[in-house]
Amino acid sequence: MLEVRDLEKSYGEREALRGISFQVREGEIFGLLGPNGAGKTTAVSIIATLLRPDSGRVLYEGRDVFSNLKWWRRKIGFVPQEMAFYEELSAMENMLLWASFYGLGRKEARRRSAEILEVLELSHRAKDRVSTFSGGMKRRLNLALGIIHNPEFLILDEPTVGIDVQARVYIREFLRELASRGTSMLYTTHQLEEAQQLCHRVAIMDAGEILVEGKVEELLKKAEENITIVLRGDFPPMETLRPSLEKFSGKILSFSGEKVALEVENEGAVAGLIKEMLEAGISLREVDIKKPDLEALFLKLTGRELRE
């Protein structure tokens, strides 16, 4: 089990992590979900021992990973957010190079490399220079290199950014299969759908903090508790609007002259609120009733929408 305790990290004045804690259990896919700049990469880099935290600890099986660097690095596979391989070499050469770092024998290295490239549908191009690969192929190779040594803990930082839906689905299937065979995973993404479909448990992050954490089903249930709506139009000042808003709603999530995000109890309240606004002469351009998903939950928690 991986245990992350109160990690804090600043880059100069900018606080990237303000004390985050979570746990990843054995065989589990744990998702860190958050918008760009939330601090996901920073958190993952610390866990992969590429950065030291300002404070806080990372423990695996109860041992501090920074005090047991070699031991921990042998256990993990790491798939960084950016492509990390040598484009001037072929896919196979890259695989064999990384295999050599883990002391895999020549034969074993070849066998495993071929196997992984096959599964990730790269074997027909295994001997080609990686610089000639498409974006999706590079993403898959980036992933392949992280699992050459069959790690027991896999750290993936947005491994599906910038590739087509098909390849994304493919990678997701692959990871699910890997997890079913016992590999634990820490998976970051800013795509709620991905987190929802792949992860067993999710922590939603924003501005260096974890807002909520739990099983995906539980979080979805939380999202269902109320209806989240976003209204766009030309609104009078908050004070003028407040009485009618409060009459129907539980909570104002965010407010600006052009956009209001609200949480309301039921659909009847939505209808009532809209009717009252129109009667008050407010011009509404758009009424967006959110699906009860992680995006709605993020909106509830932050007042902002989690955009792709």
Binding site: T49, I76, F78, F101, G146
Partner: peptide, 9 residues
Amino acid sequence: VQKRLFVSG
């Protein structure tokens, strides 16, 4: 690439 190299020991 360095990141991955260092993680790989």
